[in-house]
Write a protein that binds this DNA or RNA. Sequence first.
RNA 1: GCGCCCGUAGCUCAGUUGGAUAGAGCGCCGGACUUCGAAUCCGUAGGCCGCAGGUUCGAAUCCUGCCGGGCGCACCA
Length: 555
Amino acid sequence: MKETIRDMLKTAVKAAAAGKKLPVDSIPDAIDVEEPKFESHGDFSSNAAMISAPVQKLPPRVIAQAIIDHIQDSEGVIEKMEVAGPGFINFFIRPDAWRPVLDQIHEKGDLYGSSNFGKGRAVQVEFVSANPTGPLHVGHGRGAAVGDSVAKILSFIGYSVQREYYINDSGRQIRTLGNSVYLRYRELSGEKIEFPDGLYKGDYIIDLAQSVRDLQGDSLLRKPESEAVGFCARYAADIILKGIRDDLAAFNVEFDRWYSEQGLYDSGSVDRSIQSFRNRGLIYEKDGALWFKTSEHGDEKDRVVVKSGGETTYFASDIAYHTEKYERGFERVIDVWGADHHGYIPRIRSFLTALDIDQERFDVILVKMVNLLRGGVQIAMSTRAGEFVTLKEVVGEVGSDAARFIFLTRHYESPLDFDLEVAKKKSNDNPVYYVQYVHARICSIVARGLERGIDAGTAGPEKHSGSIEPEEIRLIKLMNRYPEVVLHAGRRLEPHRITYFLTELASAFHTYYNKHRVLADDIELTRFRLYLVLAVRKIIKNGLELLGVSAPEKM
RNA sequence: GCGCCCGUAGCUCAGUUGGAUAGAGCGCCGGACUUCGAAUCCGUAGGCCGCAGGUUCGAAUCCUGCCGGGCGCACCA
């Protein structure tokens, strides 16, 4: 509909110019056709005349009038047009002209809202990527919800998407994990242990130590410490990673690939990467360490890749990893990180510049923290002390749907308060049910219709020529907007836009439902309304799917 | 001290990448179930969009400077 109007504007300007009413026969691409906030401003409004003023060298209102005079409305969708305010052109759509939108929705079905914006380009979304040193907590849950939803949306707008989890399974933290488990293991074997700071203290470490004992008995005590620690590290990381996979599966998040950091070392990829940058003079030696010249490309200082002790840093494998991402053929790479890592961005960006990779091809989604509350009271969390609420516990308590939806109710850059009690509430406090309820309600209506012998599947508008209610037009207008909401959410990588849209659509539906009966006395009217309501159901389901939330038929 | 993010209704937050008169939910108060699901709806109140300048036809949005908050500034991960 918007495009139609845009086209009409272009042709009108050409026609006006041809008739010598305007000096220039084109309009800038920057013009907008938007839905005004106020109904009195029409269904659509354009700033074309104002934007064109500098080009046409005429007052906006004069241009606007000239355009209106030359609008050709071949399809007859416009009821009236007017010049308003400083030079807006307002369009009022004929109520009947909205009906074809319903046909489009039904024709496109599950694909309504999808597009080919991405043109099949390969994009990778890497998210969660939590170290396998402990269970996932709520913060990871938010990252998972955001990453997965972004992936779904991008896929829906025509990208070829791969979801990846980067496993930090090498380096010091894994050794720390091994040490932690090993010490607990010795403790369980009867030794008196002074548990040092800096090790992982959660109860899960003791559980892991116990299962090492169940498996190996006392045998590790007789082995050299490094070997024993190594065993504990590998064993613990495996178990924890398996737990992470399970937790994510319960959260309806699936990855296409689990990428091992250790693999980058084993394959020699890290060494090759370092060597290649060394050859190019981008990595140099100083004070016995190897440094990357990130400062030349925007970082505030150079960064160490290999410490003087010979140990590589996290940045070393990240260089290799991100290089590989592009070598694997991804045109776009999106990393989802916790906001506390934001200082890391210039590092990666400067390295990409060094690689001569266009910055446009790299995005970071920084997800801010989650404040977990219970009944308005904040729950204290400390990863170090091992006191935190896990994702598994939250999903177990409030359910995957509620958790995912709430994680996506805010822009990811905004800190999120997550109240467990609210998440469980079955009321308007809780937007998940508000939206899901629409789906269930419509399913229920359809079922009742069937009882009366009306098959909603064959319902249609064809014979209904009566007038359309304002609440019906409002619903159709909203649904008409859905494709661009999805597109925008995808372009900006902002799933919350879908959440907001669904809430708005749900609200419009509930209002409609309370005012008008779908199963009316008039059979043709009923068929039309079923047709309408089925379209709503389709979009609710589709939108929820993009958020990774189910659309129940009964609640 | 430097960098990034953020200040919008009592609370939690949106605001279509510069549009007309500022938007929701919650909370408060008052209403609506003999008919398709009340997990719903309807109504009222609530605002120097942190402050001060600037850019222009037009600013919550862009620029500068303050004030206030969060985070980051390692041969950490």
